[in-house]
């Protein structure tokens, strides 16, 4: 049986609209489940403790990025498989796992595949896959790069200094190494392979053709301005921040690979 934790507020309250169809579809697929609707995300941990004994097959988050992040943090120590039924406006983890739409997500629960993904920590907060830190947090400088209506309003005559905004940043890692540079974006990706370093850090400066790529197990990031730390599109923290790659893994439920691809030999 699965424990389904639903965020009724996700995706502009989309859950209430699809709930009857979702329940019906799961029943038709023969998927046994215990559905819990959260009053708000703060209740996720309490709901988990109350209902976890029923979750023999795994815990499923129904919602968007915020719901997924909250449920992962509630269950990281339980050792249960984790799945997603995406209904929020954005769900970057579901997208990265190839889970598209609530129907496909519900279908995979009948016969899922599993993949072990490393957990990371930002302070006390767990995360999966990757986090990003934006140095060009100034909204004006972001739009001056041509990403929004403001550029059309202001024209394209912005000075080069306005276009190359960034944050003077110091990154200390593995106790002995210090990096200093002007940062526009930092991406910290968790390495799922056992052995070797746990985090791949990619730094984008004002020269995007010149990447920086470093391997480490843990790091601290501090800038001369506060930078948001994002999981998907959700801000979970601000710098200064400590990030660690954990030895712990979480099993994620993913669509079964087609038999043809599953049998393909590795290159």
């Amino acid at each position: 049986m699965y424990l389904l934790l639903a965020n009724p507020e996700a995706g502009s309250k989309r859950f209430q609209k699809i709930k009857p169809q979702l329940v019906d579809y799961l029943n038709k697929l023969g998927v046994r489940f215990d559905l819990v609707e959260l009053a708000n995300l703060v209740d996720a941990e309490e709901a988990m403790k109350k209902h976890i004994q029923h979750a023999t097959r795994g815990v499923i988050a129904i919602g968007g990025n915020a719901t997924v992040n909250t449920v992962i943090n509630s269950m990281a120590d339980e050792g249960m498989p984790f799945g997603i039924i995406p209904i929020g406006k954005t769900n970057y983890l579901a997208h990265s796992l190839g889970i598209k739409g609530w129907r496909n997500a519900a279908k995979l629960l009948a016969e899922p595949d599993k993949i072990a993904r490393r957990l990371g920590k930002i302070g006390k907060h767990y995360f999966v896959d990757k986090i990003e830190i934006l140095g060009s947090h100034n909204l004006l400088s972001k739009y001056l790069k041509g990403e929004g209506f403001l550029k059309k309003f202001l024209g394209s005559s912005a000075s080069s200094s306005e276009r190359t905004a960034g944050v003077n940043t110091t990154i200390s890692f593995d106790g002995t190494v210090k990096v200093t540079t002007l940062v526009q974006k930092i991406s910290a990706k968790l390495n799922d392979e056992k052995g070797g370093k746990k985090i791949l850090l990619e730094i984008t400066t004002d020269d995007p053709k010149n990447p920086t790529r470093l391997w480490m197990d843990e790091l601290e990031i501090e800038g001369d301005k506060k930078m948001p730390v994002l999981m998907g599109n959700e801000t979970v923290a601000h710098t200064p921040v400590e990030i660690k790659g954990c030895s712990k893994y979480i099993e994620l439920l993913i669509p079964k690979l087609p038999a043809k691809l599953a049998k393909s030999p590795k290159k």
Binding site: V179, T181, G196, T205, D206, D207, T212
Partner: peptide, 16 residues
């Protein structure tokens, strides 16, 4: 992602 190489880009200073 499986490439284990390290790059230090221009404008970046590393010590240690």
């Amino acid at each position: 992602f499986n490439n284990p190489d390290t790059i230090i880009g221009r404008g970046v200073r590393v010590e240690g």
